[in-house]
Design a protein around this nucleic acid. Structure first.
Length: 376
DNA sequence: TATCGACCTGAGACC
DNA sequence: GTCAACAGGTCGATA
């Protein structure tokens, strides 16, 4: 099927699809090897309904091509949406030249490789990163796709691949159970997902808000970062790392550095950051009034987050993204040029095939039950 | 309040 | 075919 793509001029050093869509920020973009294009479902602008969005990058002419399938209307609306999604208001070149290189020698050896932080939907970000604990990218991707195909709504089918919405908190609480999620391979995260969805439904009702997006955005209103993180950590399965990922990628808090084992290693090895007794004492005092933070936050890692913010400034989260890609390059399949190895379309098709088979089995089983009931 | 083991699963390294 | 001082954490029991 051929579509009429819109076009957006963008230098590859400012945006590299391979480096941002499959490098562990977002887990629902599918890469089609043959057509060299990416697709996913997303809500465009303020719309509540999902559309299938297809992207491809004409690297020679430095053009991003985009189309929303089934959405006959507004290419301009999609263009505006994508500019926000990719945060194209932020210039990586400017950050390198004027912010990071002057304050950090490590950046002088690097160049922008189109690695930027996405502005993702906060609910999807929350659930995706709950899935990320103790896990690897390919399995998180499979889990997110499994959530959509099992509990989301069918949007459309293109070339034999079914595209679904990401299930809302209500859809998850009404359609999924911990047992079902465990059956689908979520392991111990099954409980976290169900409990988080239930709490969000309750929180929204109390705030008289219907949309997951609107609710999670509302907790930032007139709130300090520490309070937003405290709120996010009130959900089961959400610790400081996951909360910080939601702040950075779902709630546009560009200065937040999620500290995991890799960032912690970078901080100690390359910046000799380590907390002394006074630092730790100060942080414990700081979180005295926040019961969840007091319980869940590791002061040593929090010290690293603060020191990196001090070093890199208000876009510290973006700087972390750049160094992180470089750090894990060798272990997560990136190439020497910094491009993250793309995952195969085949894998998604395989997931689809499994889901279709499961659905077929369910239909057969229910037919069998009907027959048995008739015999009875 | 600090520490530490348990938790699901499977890609990928190794033989 | 097997296996793990895995892998982008979090929770809860214990001392």
């Amino acid at each position: 099927m051929s579509y009429k793509f819109g076009k957006l001029a963008i230098n590859k050093s400012e945006l590299c699809l391979a480096n941002v869509l499959q490098a562990g920020q977002s887990f629902r973009w599918i890469w089609d090897e043959k057509l060299n294009q990416y697709s996913t479902t997303m809500k465009i602008g303020q719309q509540e309904k999902y559309s299938v969005v297809i992207l491809r990058q004409d690297e020679e002419n430095e053009i991003l091509e985009f189309v929303a399938v089934g959405d006959c209307g507004n290419q301009d609306a999609l263009k505006t949406h994508l500019m926000k999604y990719f945060r194209l208001d932020v210039s990586l070149k400017h950050l390198f030249d004027n912010v990071w290189i002057p304050s950090d020698k490590a950046f002088a050896k690097l160049s922008p490789q189109g690695i930027r932080i996405l502005a993702q939907e906060p609910w999807e970000t929350l659930i995706s990163f709950i899935c990320s604990s103790n896990n690897n990218i390919s399995r998180i991707t499979r889990m997110c796709n499994s959530l959509c195909s099992n509990f989301g709504n069918l949007i459309t089918t293109i070339d034999g691949v079914a595209y679904h919405s990401f299930p809302t908190s209500e859809e998850l609480t009404s359609r999924a159970t911990e047992a079902k999620l465990r059956e689908l391979g979520f392991g111990y995260r099954a409980k976290y997902i169900i409990e988080t969805a239930r709490k969000l439904v309750k929180d929204k009702a109390e705030a008289n808000i219907t949309s997951d997006t609107t609710y999670l955005q509302s907790i930032c209103k007139d709130a300090q970062y520490e309070d937003v993180r405290e709120h996010l950590m009130s959900y089961n399965g959400v610790g400081p790392k996951v909360a910080d990922c939601v702040c950075l990628m779902g709630l546009h808090m560009d200065g937040i550095v999620p500290v995991d084992v890799h960032v912690s290693r970078i901080a100690k090895r390359d910046y000799q950051i380590s907390a002394n007794k006074n630092h730790l004492k100060e942080l414990r005092t700081k979180y005295n009034a926040l019961p969840i933070s007091r319980k869940k936050i590791n002061p040593e890692l929090d010290h690293i987050r603060l020191m990196l913010f001090k070093k890199w400034g208000s876009y510290a989260g973006w700087a972390q993204g750049v160094l992180f890609s470089k750090e894990i390059g060798g272990t997560s399949g990136s190439t020497t040029t910094g491009a993250i190895k793309k995952r195969k379309w085949d894998m998604i098709k395989e997931t689809e095939a499994i889901v279709t088979k499961q659905m077929k089995l369910k239909v057969e089983l229910s037919d069998l039950h009907i027959k048995e009931a008739k015999i009875d």
